[in-house]
Amino acid sequence: ENVVSAPMPGKVLRVLVRVGDRVRVGQGLLVLEAMKMENEIPSPRDGVVKRILVKEGEIDDTGQPLIELG
């Protein structure tokens, strides 16, 4: 899985990584606010952040691509 998608609709509060960062499975990639709760979205695998497809403050839909890993 190279693309991390939104598991729920919500607002992107914080992006915790930058392009080029090495990430490990379970590491937080970004924080979504949904139903007044903050949810940290973890990396599904080890890899390198290739692209960040959303910006802080954006509203996303379920299934929307958020981050691409390489």
Rank of each mutant, 00 (worst) to 15 (best):
E1Y: 12
E1L: 13
E1H: 13
N2T: 15
N2Y: 15
N2V: 14
N2F: 15
V3L: 12
V3I: 14
V3W: 14
V3R: 06
V3S: 07
V4R: 02
V4Y: 02
V4C: 06
V4M: 04
V4S: 03
V4E: 03
S5D: 06
S5K: 14
S5F: 15
A6V: 05
A6G: 04
P7N: 08
P7F: 06
M8R: 08
M8G: 10
M8L: 09
P9D: 06
P9I: 07
K11I: 10
K11N: 05
V12W: 00
L13C: 08
L13G: 02
R14D: 07
V15Q: 02
V15I: 15
V15A: 00
L16C: 11
L16M: 09
L16D: 03
V17W: 00
R18M: 10
V19K: 06
V19R: 05
G20M: 05
G20T: 04
G20Y: 02
G20C: 11
D21F: 06
R22Q: 12
R22S: 12
R22N: 11
R22H: 14
V23D: 02
R24C: 13
R24H: 13
V25P: 07
V25H: 10
V25G: 07
V25R: 14
V25N: 08
G26I: 04
G26S: 04
Q27C: 07
Q27A: 05
Q27M: 07
G28K: 09
G28W: 07
G28S: 12
G28L: 13
G28E: 04
L29F: 00
L29D: 01
L30Q: 00
L30N: 00
L30M: 09
L30K: 00
L30I: 14
L30E: 01
V31A: 01
V31S: 01
V31R: 00
L32D: 01
L32E: 01
L32Y: 15
E33F: 13
E33K: 04
E33H: 06
A34M: 12
A34K: 04
A34W: 15
M35F: 13
M35E: 13
M35H: 13
M35T: 08
M35D: 14
K36M: 14
K36N: 15
K36D: 15
K36I: 06
M37D: 07
M37V: 13
M37W: 07
E38D: 07
E38L: 11
N39M: 15
N39E: 11
E40C: 14
I41G: 01
P42K: 15
P42D: 05
P42A: 12
S43W: 03
S43L: 02
S43G: 02
S43N: 01
S43M: 02
P44N: 05
P44Y: 04
P44H: 09
P44Q: 04
R45T: 10
R45I: 15
R45V: 14
R45A: 11
D46H: 09
D46M: 07
D46F: 08
D46Q: 07
G47Q: 02
G47D: 03
G47V: 02
V48P: 01
V49W: 00
V49C: 05
V49S: 00
V49N: 02
V49H: 01
K50S: 10
K50P: 01
R51D: 06
R51G: 07
I52P: 01
I52S: 01
I52G: 01
I52R: 01
L53G: 02
L53Y: 13
L53I: 09
V54K: 05
K55P: 08
K55W: 12
E56T: 10
E56N: 08
E56M: 10
G57C: 08
G57E: 06
E58F: 12
I59T: 10
D60V: 15
D61P: 09
D61G: 11
D61K: 14
G63I: 05
G63T: 08
Q64D: 13
Q64A: 13
Q64Y: 10
Q64R: 11
Q64L: 09
Q64S: 11
P65F: 07
P65Y: 06
P65G: 09
I67R: 01
I67F: 08
E68Y: 10
E68V: 15
L69F: 09
L69Y: 04
G70F: 15
G70R: 12
G70S: 13
G70M: 14
G70L: 13
G70Y: 15
G70I: 14
